[in-house]
Simulated assay, not measured.
Amino acid sequence: MNALVVNSSGRTEYSVSRQLVAELMTELEIKHPDLHVHYRDVAAGMPYVNDLMIAGFYTPVDARSADQTQALAFSDLLVQELKAADMLIIGVPIYNFSIPAALKAWIDLIARAGLTFSFSADGPMGLLHDKKAYLVVASGGVEVGSPYDMATPYLRQVLGFVGITDVEIISADQLNLLGEQPIGSAREAIQRIHAIV
C-alpha cells in the first residue's frame, strides 16, 4: 500500500499542519506496517503553469516538441506520484481564507486531461478512483466549515474532479482564538482512524 504526503506550510518549524501530518503518519504506519510513504513538500518550490506547458497539455504525446516534453516532465512526475498512491495526505494551513499558493500550483500540475480526468458527453470525469484522502488543516482564525473557509470546499471540489471522493478532514482551527484545544481535538481524530480505503 502506498501513501503520498503533500505538505504545503511555508513554515518548516512550528508548523501545526506539518506536526499533525507527522502524527497521522505515525499512526497509519503502526496500523499498516506495509505502508510505503512518499513525501512531497510543495512549499520547497513548485513551477507555475506557463505558455509552454499549456501548449503541451493540448498536444498529443507523440506530437509534442522537445521543449514541451521537457516543460511537462515535472508535472508528469507529480501525476505519477499521485496515481501510484492508494492514500493521499495533504497538510494544509489556511492562508487568507484559502490554500497556500504552492498547493494551488501543485493542483494545477496534477489536474491533467487524459491523465487524472477526462471529458465525456456528460462533462468531465475523474480518473483517480479507490483512493482515500486526508486533509490535515490548521488555521489561526478561520473556522473550518464556516463561510470564511474557502480552503476545504475547494480541495474537496478539486479532489472530486480528479476522482478522489473519499475525503476526511482533520482540523486544528482557530488556534489564535482557542489555543491548544483544537490540536487536542485533531489528535483525538487521528487516534480514531482505523481504515485507509
Rank of each mutant, 00 (worst) to 15 (best):
Ala43Asn: 10
Gly45Pro: 06
Met46Ala: 05
Pro47Gly: 09
Tyr48Val: 06
Tyr48Met: 09
Val49Asp: 00
Val49Glu: 01
Asn50Gln: 06
Asn50Met: 08
Leu52Ala: 05
Met53Trp: 02
Ile54Cys: 07
Ala55Val: 01
Ala55Gln: 15
Gly56Pro: 01
Gly56Arg: 00
Phe57Met: 13
Phe57Leu: 13
Phe57Thr: 04
Phe57Pro: 01
Thr59Ile: 13
Ala63Gly: 00
Ser65Phe: 02
Ala66Arg: 02
Ala66Thr: 11
Gln68Trp: 01
Gln70Glu: 15
Asp76Tyr: 02
Leu77Glu: 14
Leu82Cys: 05
Leu82Arg: 06
Lys83Arg: 12
Lys83Trp: 01
Ala85Phe: 12
Leu88Phe: 05
Ile89Met: 07
Ile90Thr: 04
Gly91His: 08
Gly91Arg: 09
Ile94Ala: 03
Tyr95Pro: 04
Tyr95Arg: 12
Tyr95Ala: 08
Asn96Lys: 10
Asn96Ile: 03
Phe97Cys: 07
Ser98Gly: 14
Ile99Trp: 04
Ile99Asp: 08
Ile99Ala: 07
Ile99Leu: 11
Ala102Ile: 05
Ala102Asn: 09
Leu103Glu: 15
Lys104Ile: 00
Ile107Gly: 06
Asp108Tyr: 10
Leu109Gln: 13
Leu109Cys: 06
Ile110Arg: 03
Ile110Met: 04
Ala111Glu: 10
Arg112Gln: 09
Arg112Asn: 01
Arg112Ala: 01
Ala113Phe: 00
